[in-house]
């Protein structure tokens, strides 16, 4: 399936990636060639095949409801781009 420039812009926005108009055509071409590779599987009849999300059949293990973590704010915020009063700062969110 060939991708249009507008498709690229739409998915780029969903993925919060900046793709300029000039780049969009090139990106569309590259992704289209990947989709062409992917489309090999379209001809295969999988009507009665159940999707497989994990390679083995196992079930989720459960964790006891116990608090095991302690406050590490100061340590963890050393690597943050911007903080104040213990909060992570981001450009103003407009509701």
């Amino acid at each position: 399936m060939a991708l249009e420039q507008t498709d690229v812009e739409k998915i780029a926005h969903l993925a919060r990636l900046h793709v300029s108009t000039e780049e969009a055509t090139e990106v569309a071409k590259r992704i289209s060639s990947i989709l062409e590779l992917i489309d090999q599987m379209q001809g295969i009849d999988t009507e009665n095949v159940a999707p497989m999300a994990h390679s083995f059949d196992a079930i989720q293990r459960l964790r006891p409801d116990v608090v095991t973590e302690t406050d590490q704010r100061e340590y963890l915020q050393k690597i943050a781009p911007s903080t104040q009063d213990g909060l992570y700062l981001v450009p103003k969110v407009i509701e």
Binding site: Q84, D85, G86, L87, Y88, L89, V90, P91, K92
Partner: peptide, 9 residues
């Protein structure tokens, strides 16, 4: 917060 939004997780 300096014109920004603060995030508490």
């Amino acid at each position: 917060y300096q014109g920004q939004t603060g995030i508490d997780l």
